Simulated scan of single mutants.
Amino acid sequence: MKALTDLLSTDYGLMSLLVIAFTIFMSIWFGRFFKRHIEEDAARAARADQSAKL
């Protein structure tokens, strides 16, 4: 209980909570960013293969 109180009521606890939230947000953002670009590159490579066969 003391740890939760420290987390929510002290300056170092709030900063830790902010860093944890920021880290989670960035991991989600990077995952979506990489997934989108991987799919775009795969589609571009498929189009290049298709046009090379013609």
Rank of each mutant, 00 (worst) to 15 (best):
L18N: 11
R44S: 10
A52H: 12
L4H: 12
K2L: 10
K2M: 09
R47Q: 10
I20Q: 02
I28T: 02
R32Q: 10
G13W: 12
L7C: 02
L18A: 15
S16K: 12
A42C: 03
I28Y: 05
F33I: 04
I38S: 03
L14P: 01
F30E: 01
S9D: 05
G31H: 03
K2Y: 08
L7K: 00
S16C: 11
A43E: 06
M26A: 03
M15H: 13
T10P: 13
Q50K: 14
K53D: 05
K2F: 07
E39S: 11
D41V: 08
D11E: 14
A3N: 10
R47V: 04
I38T: 02
I38R: 00
G31Q: 05
A42H: 02
I20E: 05
L14G: 05
R44A: 13
D49E: 12
M15S: 15
S27C: 07
A52E: 11
M1F: 14
A42P: 00
S16P: 01
T5F: 14
T23K: 11
F33E: 09
D49A: 15
H37K: 14
F33Q: 02
H37P: 00
M1E: 11
A48I: 06
G13H: 05
T5A: 12
L17A: 12
L7Y: 02
